[in-house]
Write a protein that binds this DNA or RNA. Sequence first.
DNA 1: CCGAATCCGCAGTGATACTG
DNA 2: CAGTATCACTGCGGATTCGG
Lengths: 215, 215
Amino acid sequence: MKRRDYGQYCGLARALELIGERWALLIVRNLAVRPHRYTDLLDGLPGIPTNVLSTRLKELEHSGTIERRIAPAPQRGVLYALTPLGHELEPAIFALGRWGALHMDEPRPGEIVTSESVIMNLRGVFDAEAAAALSACWEIRAPDLVLHLVVTDGKLEAGVGPAPAEPDLVITFQPDELPSYRELMQAAKCGLVELSGRRELLDTFLRVFAIPQPV
Amino acid sequence: MKRRDYGQYCGLARALELIGERWALLIVRNLAVRPHRYTDLLDGLPGIPTNVLSTRLKELEHSGTIERRIAPAPQRGVLYALTPLGHELEPAIFALGRWGALHMDEPRPGEIVTSESVIMNLRGVFDAEAAAALSACWEIRAPDLVLHLVVTDGKLEAGVGPAPAEPDLVITFQPDELPSYRELMQAAKCGLVELSGRRELLDTFLRVFAIPQPV
DNA sequence: CCGAATCCGCAGTGATACTG
DNA sequence: CAGTATCACTGCGGATTCGG
């Protein structure tokens, strides 16, 4: 397991040696949402070659960023999950995601949106100050995509699947609308979504999940 | 100028397409300290092939992250500098640098330390809360390395070269001590440095530039 | 089905030489 | 000083195959 290095005793250089290679940080992003099995990762990262995925998983495990687990009884199989050290990458993922969002004007042809990308984008733009003392529960629905956002006393929990309790507001997208967080905001502002529940929470939503403005 | 993409409409994926290729973020790191000429970048990034450097500079200019400038009168020549959009990458660089620092136990044989890496590491670990209302000026000296840290009312300015005004404390390293920020802290704690000035500011220094603890 | 290993063609990278 | 040119090499993308 020889890796190319940058020859510098520097935190950034170390980080890039460990998670700077192609696909690595996207794997970490998906694992930050929840543990995945190998085939879940393949599904959530369309286009990744299987040999690259298995190589990255070994490298990330070797560097202590992720770990292999044996899934519990009903499913059985291998689960990949972030270690505590891997979770320490989340601030960097959020910062990079916010910067990249400045370059997201229009989706390019063929680009897809996955649950994991939406969740991590939303976690990254969550404005804790604007949400101080807030409690609310949203559910986002689109074709092949259901996720929930629960804010409890200003603290965010965002995950795949329907809300654990009855959501305050359900936001439903039509098939032709990309439910990325940017498009979501724009669509919501233009009234292109279907709302069910406490409609006044849409404004709260748009305020708490603030879009980085493109330059 | 075709680039490989990840096929996802996602902020992180966008960011990785733009600055995820080899050497790109290290170039941005160096330009974040001050504008550089082409040969300065070559010196500050030992090992980078010249064709890779020129390719990255073109890509980064194309994405609006950096810009070419004609240097003013005395020097004349080309200067590369970050655009405002490029400066928006600094939080991500700091976050990655702090994470990478968790993996920096010992310097590896042959690894070097540059002014730019030390400055950006220090900027990244600067604790604004701990430095609130503080004003102080340090100068760090080592072989082939002089840099200054000026905190004015809790706000940090860190750059290459000697301090603009008389420093409150000068910290001088011996040739055998790597003046990376981590080694610097350890050496300073062990008294392996030469101090000149208000010695009590060493404790302040260690408090305001907090080391990320390795896991 | 899950979790990969293997093979091949090609694009990105590294090292060096060379040039306006 | 600020790059371009060349060439060997390695990593990546795409597909197929394989073992549990």
